[in-house]
Write a protein that binds this DNA or RNA. Structure first.
Length: 619
DNA sequence: CGAATTTGACCTGCGC
DNA sequence: GCGCAGGTCAAATTCG
């Protein structure tokens, strides 16, 4: 086993007990083999292998589904004689129909279905007295009575139809046509809703960025302010690894440093050293050469601006900034492996025994780019050593693979909420319950805010199986017309919304609960929110549903890592143009397993976006 | 031999 | 000032 592969280097270490939970079950069998990184190739193979083990114990749904029942072709599963895929196992046939169902925005889908159900349509019509029956049989009726193909006519028109039957059929047809029209309208409405949700989220995100930038620039001199105005908005995004990467280095990196490293009150010299390290594009080598001298000089250099800011700023702003700097996002997940999968490459630089926990704490540094300030701490839970707690800190200063942006987006959303909450709660302690509910509204147990820890920390608990997971076990459908392509694949669309909906939910709930970003938010920044408020009701309903599903996904670490990776690759392509150029990403649930692994056909230019991690043990 | 991990030493902030 | 704990460094070690 190569150490370089991030193996279980701590053989006697409780952290490194082998195995895997969160990051390995992912199977991306359709990824192009363009990845030249031997580690990732190896890991892809390992993932495929280990996913088989997971399958035996866990069976997440193979589709991410949305509770809108428009067409239920499953009613006809029993009709094997007319099922073109009748030779397939029943589950595969079901998935085949599921794909048709998910594409309920397609205009001509009936043409496919009608051929498979034409012969049993009459019986269904007879039994379809209830509205539910209408829904269930909508295709049948349409197929039976509205089609003009010779083949269908020959099948239906057997020469024994009575006038009574014709009249009844016509009546049914009228009803069903009305129902179809209604559903078309509903589809359009859902499209609009989703468009609003997405655009509103983006707008709110920009609002927050603008706000943060404004607050940040409040501590900077006029020259920097002018620069930022000229250059446009420079996002200051907490743990939003991908987004930060999207904005490039430069100012963003400085901001990230000021938030995560430079301002750490307890470790000014280290952070200053990191500043020097990160400000030098040379990476760690330069800083290593300077050694102690660098540390001695750095306090003035690294802390100067913040020191001045403290003296020149109001108390509230100071507290806010301090909170921003120290915010962390922890992810608790069951893993027998040393680390969880976040898509990044990490190098272990230290290990320490922490008080109160017999398990050592491991320190990792992102090595995907020289000078990347992002670090993480990994420690097993003392009570349950199958639980791994990973704490992220800092912003990546480089583009990330889709697998990494997944975790980044998730933690980003949590961090944003923490940020938002802390900014508005400077007069009092944070309401941890509220924030927990906000981050994962369907289950407050999934997210907690630690007010006692030295740093404000959002903990996303993926170790519990909340009730919403039951939600995914139901054979319901999901398709969302994502405003940005690709949007045709249900799972991809749903998955792509995971971080966004999470973020949207954060904002929605924060607003509805009176948790405002800042009292001095400028009116023009609220423009999007005012507009969005008009659609709040609709959006909330949809957002709630999606957020529930999001939480359910997040509750299953196996599924989360796999799905979120594919997901965020789409988001990255849609919203983070300068991160990855992702085209024609196709993410579908695997038809060959039921363990939640995803099969992804990916033609994008980011050929190595297999879910992997250099910290994976090579076994 | 290069890359990554290991691990003891070191630094810093905080509480007493 | 001292001790503790958290965090980091860097030489030594390991491994393919």
């Amino acid at each position: 086993m190569a150490k370089g592969s991030g193996g279980l280097s701590i053989d006697s270490d409780p952290i490194a007990t082998g195995g895997f939970f969160l990051h390995k079950p992912t199977v991306l069998t359709s990824f192009p083999e363009e990845n030249t990184n031997p580690k990732w190739k190896h890991l892809a193979a390992t993932s495929a292998t280990q996913s088989m083990d997971v399958k035996a114990t866990r069976s997440p749904p193979s589709t991410f589904q949305f509770p809108v029942k428009l067409i239920n072709t499953n009613e006809h599963d029993h009709d094997h004689d007319h099922d073109p895929d009748s030779s397939l196992p029943s589950d595969k046939r079901r998935r085949s129909t599921v794909i048709d169902e998910m594409d309920f925005f397609a205009d001509k889908k009936h043409d496919v279905d009608r051929m498979t159900i034409i012969n049993n349509g009459t019986d269904d019509l007879k039994d379809s007295g209830s509205p539910a029956g209408l829904e269930l049989n909508v295709n049948t009726a349409l197929n039976l009575l509205t089609t003009n193909t010779s083949s269908e006519q020959s099948t239906v028109d057997d020469g024994v139809s009575s006038n009574m039957e014709d009249k009844r059929a016509k009546s049914e047809l009228a009803v069903l046509r009305a129902e179809v029209e209604r559903m078309k309208e509903e589809n359009l409405r859902l499209k609009d809703m989703l468009t609003h949700v997405t655009s509103n989220y983006n707008a709110l995100q920009m609002d927050l960025i603008t706000l943060l930038q404004g607050q940040n620039s409040h501590h900077k001199d006029e020259q920097h302010d002018g620069k930022n105005k000229d250059d446009g908005i420079v996002p200051r995004q907490f743990m939003d690894l991908g987004l930060v990467a999207a904005t490039g280095g430069g100012d963003t990196e400085d901001l990230s440093l000021s938030t995560s490293e430079g301002g750490r009150r307890r470790d000014p010299t280290r952070s200053s050293g990191n500043n020097a390290e990160n400000n030098n594009e040379d990476g760690t080598g330069e800083q290593d050469k300077k050694g102690t001298d660098q540390r001695e000089e750095s306090p003035d250099q690294g802390r100067g601006s913040h020191k001045d800011a403290r003296f020149n700023s109001t108390k509230s702003v100071d507290q806010t900034e301090a909170t921003i700097r120290k915010a962390r996002v922890s992810v608790r997940a069951r893993s027998e492996d040393a680390t969880i999968s976040d898509g990044c490459q990490w190098r272990k630089y230290g290990q320490k025994m922490a008080k109160g926990n017999p398990c050592p704490r491991a320190y990792y540094r992102c090595t995907m780019a020289a000078g990347c300030p992002v670090r993480k701490q990994v420690q097993r839970c003392a009570e349950d050593r199958t639980i791994l707690t990973t704490t992220y800190e800092g912003n990546h200063s480089h583009p990330l693979p889709p697998a990494a942006t997944a975790m980044a987006s998730t933690t980003s959303s949590a961090a944003r909420m923490l940020l938002s909450g802390s900014m508005s709660s400077t007069d009092g302690p944070m309401n941890s319950d509220f924030l927990a509910r906000t981050i994962l509204p369907c289950s407050s147990s999934l997210a907690t805010i630690s007010a006692s820890s030295p740093f404000p920390t959002v903990t996303l608990d993926l170790t519990q199986n909340p009730s919403p997971l039951q939600f995914l076990k139901q054979p319901i459908q999901f398709q969302v017309p994502f405003p940005n392509p690709p949007q045709n694949l249900a799972t991809a669309s749903a998955a792509a919304l995971l971080p966004q909906i999470l973020g949207q939910a954060l904002h929605n709930q924060s607003k509805s609960s009176g948790l405002q970003m800042s009292q001095d938010m400028q009116p023009n920044r609220l423009g999007h929110q005012s507009q969005s408020a008009l659609q709040q009701g609709q959006q909330n309903s949809l957002a709630d549903s999606l957020t529930t599903a999001t939480a359910a996904i997040a509750a299953d670490p196996n599924f989360t890592a796999a799905l979120a990776a594919a997901i965020t690759s789409i988001i990255g392509g849609a919203h983070q143009n300068n991160i990855n150029s992702i085209n024609n990403v196709q993410t579908t649930t695997s038809n060959n397993n039921s363990n939640g692994n995803i099969t992804t056909g990916n033609n994008n230019s980011y050929g190595h976006n297999k879910i992997t991690n250099s910290s994976f043990p090579s076994d």
